[in-house]
Design a protein around this nucleic acid. Structure first.
Lengths: 226, 226
DNA sequence: GCAGGCGTCAACCAAATGGTTAAACCCTTT
DNA sequence: AAAGGGTTTAACCATTTGGTTGACGCCTGC
């Protein structure tokens, strides 16, 4: 689909997913937003190297040259999409995780909110994980840009639990990683899990919904010290 | 790197990672194995669409045409690599998970063994997750080929714990997913975690090692019913 | 020692792909 | 209504890339 031999005219709107609109009779640069939306979809679905500029242009319903007009090249466009995507995810997590709420409130809140976002952007985690693994060079930049830092508050709260060392006291980092992993993993491995557990999309959606209540119980039981 | 303009001779060995060997004076098709090894490295590092046949040939120290001689095309070569990779992972997990060992033995065994394999193939999870998310069509085939099925034994064991419903009884599937996620997630998100938690490679290796003992404790505490 | 075939290679090819260009388009300003 | 500038387009280009081809080498069996 969307093939386009070289030296052959392009730019028809026939394959656009968005409703054709009278071009450019819009408010300030709606085009730019349509490009971003289209790019996000294509990049998330195919990854950086799998994404095709033509596919993005088609999905946005514009000429390929426009992509380079607004974003100089593929990498720049990708960076815009990715930075926004990763930023959105990180921002929400950190807002919850670094809040002043007591741990007993924070844990259910985290699982509820976080799984909630992920349900609305189910492909985000795999996308981010994939690209970060293939090229993590720009991570520092993005982290700086979004003010991401070691979540000291949460780690501190975890550390306090084990003041009286009844259980072997784990590094609080483990608990944080566990928390993230428990929430994120089903989204990362969704296709595999569906297949192994014999679930269709509806089953899986219900399964994820259950986890919003299961995970807080599971996690809080795991760190109970009494 | 490894650029190669069209119509320009290729096939020098200068960029091979393997020691140059006298060609073809070897036992039955060592070449095939070298191709597989090289392909695995390149595919795992770059994904399907990011991998270049030329890069694989270079890494294997052979001519690009050989790739097509042994494996008709890129997809076939990828399938061979991927099937082997996913199979290896699934096989070990299922051997442990579906054994007759009692749950209290099985849980530490699982975390130990599984994290152990993953330490030796740290990029495998991200690779599998990525490709499975971008194209899960051939999952059924691979699953059939490796005899992967719903792990009934483990799920049964999980279900038995909650016979007396003191805690709210979660679907045993949740516990299985939790187990997998806890073990796998750090490998999937390694670059992110290193950055967020301020760990260098040595720190992170130690962190993973700790998890072999932390996770059984964490998990068993979480499912304790008394 | 020569016929046949597997393995290997340099060279080649067509399509795909990211990127560029020059002209048009349309709205605003004067 | 003409000038001017941001926006959009069709056509084009250079390079990359997966894949093919024809020949050569070398070992084996006769």
């Amino acid at each position: 689909m969307n093939s386009n031999r070289s030296n052959v005219p392009q730019g028809g709107r026939e394959s656009s997913d968005l409703p054709a609109q009278s071009p450019q009779a819009n408010r300030e640069s709606e085009t730019e937003q349509r490009i971003l939306d289209a790019a996000r979809q294509v990049f998330i679905l195919n990854g950086f190297s799998g994404a095709r500029m033509q596919a993005i242009a088609d999905k946005a319903g514009i000429n390929k040259a426009m992509l380079h007009y607004y974003y100089r090249n593929k990498q720049k466009l990708f960076d815009a999409v990715f930075t926004e995507a990763l930023g959105k995810i990180l921002h929400v997590v950190f807002a919850i995780v670094e809040s002043d709420a007591p741990l007993d409130d924070k844990i259910p809140l985290f699982f509820n909110e976080y799984i909630g976002i992920l349900q609305r952007h189910p492909h985000m985690p795999a996308f981010v994980v994939n690209e970060v693994n293939q090229n993590g060079n720009w991570l520092p930049e993005i982290f700086k840009k979004h003010g991401v830092h070691k979540p000291k508050k949460l780690l501190q709260q975890f550390a306090e639990i084990y003041q009286q060392p009844e259980l072997d006291c784990p590094r609080p980092e483990h608990l944080m990683v566990n928390m993230l992993g428990l929430a994120l993993f089903p989204f990362l491995a969704a296709p595999l899990l569906k297949r192994v557990l014999n679930m269709d999309d509806a089953d899986f959606a219900a399964f994820l919904e259950e986890r919003k209540t299961h995970l807080p119980a599971f996690f809080q039981q795991a760190i109970k010290t009494t």
